[in-house]
């Protein structure tokens, strides 16, 4: 359950910026290839926010699909999982998106 650590890191990162201000909304970007389960993260966020100025804040998760670029044939395509294979047969891929694990912004009272 690393989602709890992730949730604690979110609370910590936000509080470092907003200090004692009441936080109402936290917006995060989570890539589909980032090994984080949104439902589990939501659950853990509620726990992690308990007793902090983030208590009761809504967590808005924007999921980001995976995308890759093939260095062999130069095409760009959707990457549903971590299996690195282009339709041209090459495994020489660069993951362009889908590994995001970012705090985008917060709404502060």
């Amino acid at each position: 359950m690393h989602e709890l650590s992730i949730a604690e890191s979110i609370v910590e990162a936000v509080q470092a910026r907003t200090h004692e201000d009441q936080v109402r909304v936290v917006r995060v970007r989570i890539g589909k290839l980032a090994a984080v389960v949104p439902d589990a993260l939501e659950f853990c966020f509620e726990l992690a926010a308990c007793g902090t100025p983030l208590e009761g804040a809504r967590l808005e998760i924007a999921e980001r699909p995976g995308r890759a670029h093939c260095r062999s044939c130069d095409q760009e395509f959707a990457l549903p999982d971590l299996v690195l294979l282009c339709s041209c047969g090459s495994a020489d891929l660069e993951i362009l998106a889908g590994r995001e694990l970012q705090v985008a912004s917060v709404e502060v009272a």
Binding site: S9, A13, L101, Q102, A104, S105
Partner: peptide, 14 residues
Amino acid sequence: RTHTVELEQAVLAR
């Protein structure tokens, strides 16, 4: 009245 604070940082930055 809420206002937006942009963070734009990695969750695991620390």
